[in-house]
Design a protein around this nucleic acid. Sequence first.
DNA 1: CTGTTAGCGCCTTCAT
DNA 2: ATGAAGGCGCTAACAG
Lengths: 320, 320
Amino acid sequence: MSTINDVSRLAGVSKATVSRVLSGSRGVKEASRLAVLKAVDELNYRPNVIAQSLLSQSTGCIGVICAHENINQTTSYLYVLEKHLSQHQKHLLLRFANTKSAVLHALEELNCGLCDDILIIGARFPLDIDQENVILVDCMEAENVNSIQFDHAFAAETACNYLISQGRRQIAMIQPQGSGFADQVLLGYKHALEKNFLPFNRNLVFLEATSSSVALQELLNNAATLNFNALMVADEHEAQHIIPQLQAFNKSVPDDIMVFSLGGSLQLPGVPVIPAIEYPIEAMAVRIVNWLTEKTQDMLGTQLMRGDLFIPDVRRKASR
Amino acid sequence: MSTINDVSRLAGVSKATVSRVLSGSRGVKEASRLAVLKAVDELNYRPNVIAQSLLSQSTGCIGVICAHENINQTTSYLYVLEKHLSQHQKHLLLRFANTKSAVLHALEELNCGLCDDILIIGARFPLDIDQENVILVDCMEAENVNSIQFDHAFAAETACNYLISQGRRQIAMIQPQGSGFADQVLLGYKHALEKNFLPFNRNLVFLEATSSSVALQELLNNAATLNFNALMVADEHEAQHIIPQLQAFNKSVPDDIMVFSLGGSLQLPGVPVIPAIEYPIEAMAVRIVNWLTEKTQDMLGTQLMRGDLFIPDVRRKASR
DNA sequence: CTGTTAGCGCCTTCAT
DNA sequence: ATGAAGGCGCTAACAG
């Protein structure tokens, strides 16, 4: 790799002039400007970003630590994030970490000059971090200033309302252990019931379920008395586990039981499409990039991010 | 962030001594060693990797450009790669790029001092790159020295043999346009037929299919005469598109038609599990990391990577 | 054993 | 308009 010295020598000017030409060339004689450009082209010179980083004290690298349990959930995040970051000449440095210690370890490794800022996404365990350049996205227990959180109560309320509007008044709910949002979800769930003058049945609700399978079995064992006709689960992944089990018990989806995902739908080919709350990843990415570039407005933590209600289009079921 | 100067000042030694203590401290008086360590701890000092990189001319960053069409395919790659890379203190710099120009653009941006080496994964378009520090993984037309390629002919042959062993002698095949491996796959397919003394029926094979849907329709329209009972498709994604369409035509899978994926199975919950050729990602990651760290053995291009035959365990169908 | 010196490649004053 | 010099934070060679 050729350096600025090579260029300056070949062009017969000083390093300073080369630098000037390459960064907003103003106050440079046209002749030397051309000489520099020619030398640059000849040597195929590209300024070393590391040296620039050392000087500017910023690398343009954003560390992204994916703490989500199931990786498929993160894929769409990553794709959208990378798109927005690269549009702003920022680089995405990827890390996976499923436990608190793993996250902290990754944080340590990334946070020693390599990354300007760090995103932690989808952690389902408490994470007492309070660094200025770290922002938590969809993590639990983030009283931190820098965080983007989802409005799970609102999601649950919307979901209930939708289900009720579809004639489903016996709504069961399973939240896996350690989701971290059980109380918020329960709040929204209860709100919706209250507003619709429906009673709250404790036996329909499984918060902190060790196994969603077992919770489902318990629901099914009491199906005769509970008589539930809708089931809210945490995310698409859960839903796709649950649905075959319902079918195995001769419950058709959605006719007998409508399954609703509170955490987005993957919409992969081959899997049944179900109604869901879909969090606007694009909008989130925009908010993140804004914060990364502006750094002034701390509009991150001010308001919870609300998802959209996604309803499967039955007509398009078979099409691509 | 505190620098080595702060530490040396606080510890009352020179920068050099600090550096010595932190990197394989030998030949340092115990007293000053402890003083340095104390100062380091007090200031919470961590050496700036950028400055180190400038000196060592290597950043420990590996650029990974995902050129796969469908992102879900890349997720498992990324996860495994990141695991192996971070174990070797290397960082994964992620980029998505679906077109040749996008890949070249990303390459340009990553290849100016930021990344030591760059991986391009799953490009389905020709990519005439010949840089020492770039390695192509599962890309088409990689006569390049640095590449890991999959043995698609072997995969097709294995697939056919398996299908024939299952009593499926009328094997259809759909390869999407621009997969880049159509000829290799065809080779393996023909080999298997020959070795089993089966005739080759041109109408069963769709290479360079603009739309796999249309190809399937053509197959189904001629189902009476073709009478096919197996169908090989490029990957799981294709398979999950195809299967509902088969079912819509009252063909049951796998009873009437066994669908086989030549490019791995995602094994997501909710989607039917089908037989497939599964490429050993872990082994691939090991090979890649070996090359990145050793750089000596060019065992990358020497042999094609062969996949394993994956057969769904029917008994476990309903379990997690 | 330890401090001084000289750069890694770049950019930014400060003179000229 | 342009060159020389200094320094970003660190390490390696060279003296002591």
